[in-house]
């Protein structure tokens, strides 16, 4: 239990998707104009990460990694399909996003109306594929560890995008040098926030 919590905290603060790895920067920069919409996108990212990371974990464990197919029959023991992981992961993500969109639309129209436009965007958000690839690279032992990693990464991403959106709402009233207006200043603020987040690096969990 404690280990799950450690992975959760670590993936929020120390290995933050945005500040440590720049994943999902495109939608982070494009959608962070107001706090409300960025909250919606952040929630959608958490939602999708919590579903896709465990599913990709199962794929990795029972289909793709070296010797993973031995549960089918012992003669597949030395088959290594890991080169297929990119295409399988992206297929899982795209179809999961589609599925989640349909389920949400059917059962909770209110949530669908608030998340709706963001869900299709998420299929090509690097944070989602990055989550699965990091899960593969770090070799988590149980599906619960993978899930808590997915949840933590999503929460970290939400924190980052809501933070920058709040700053951007305020910065509209200040006098930024003309060439830096908009995109430039957002890059620099993100960099400064990243430096602040580096202070978590020393924590050993």
């Amino acid at each position: 239990m404690q280990e799950l919590f450690n992975i959760f905290v670590k993936s929020i603060f120390i290995d933050n998707m945005i500040f440590a790895y720049f994943l999902g920067m495109c939608s982070y920069l494009a959608v962070s104009k107001t706090v409300k919409t960025s909250m919606g996108l952040g929630l959608a990212v958490i939602f999708v990460l919590v579903i896709t990371v465990p599913v990709d974990y199962l794929m990795q464990k029972y289909l793709l990694s070296a010797g993973a197919l031995s549960w089918l029959s012992p003669e597949f023991a030395d088959v290594d399909l890991s080169f297929l992981s990119f295409i399988m992961f992206i297929a899982v993500i795209a179809s999961m996003v589609q599925l989640v969109e349909m389920i949400v639309e059917k059962f909770t129209p209110a949530l669908y109306n608030s998340l709706g436009i963001f869900l299709p965007l998420i299929a090509v958000n690097c944070a989602i594929l990055g989550g699965s690839l990091f899960m593969q690279e770090r070799e988590y032992e149980t599906i619960w560890q993978a899930t808590s990693f997915g949840l933590g990464s999503g929460v970290g991403w939400l924190l980052a995008i809501v933070g920058i959106a709040a700053i951007r709402e305020k910065i509209r009233y200040s006098n930024v040098p003309a060439p830096l207006r908009g995109l430039g200043i957002t890059f620099i603020i993100t960099g400064l926030m990243g430096i602040a987040f580096m202070s978590f690096l020393g924590i050993k969990l």
């Binding site: 500040f19 440590a20 790895y21 720049f22 040098p177 003309a178 060439p179 830096l180 995109l183 430039g184 200043i185 957002t186 890059f187 620099i188 993100t190 960099g191 400064l192 926030m193 990243g194 430096i195 580096m198």
Partner: peptide, 22 residues
């Protein structure tokens, strides 16, 4: 050492944008 850390890449791109747009 700060240059090696990831946040500096963002700040450098910010500066490139600044130069390009001015």
């Amino acid at each position: 050492g700060l240059m090696i850390l990831p946040p500096m890449a963002l700040i450098l791109i910010g500066i490139i944008i600044w130069v390009q747009k001015s």
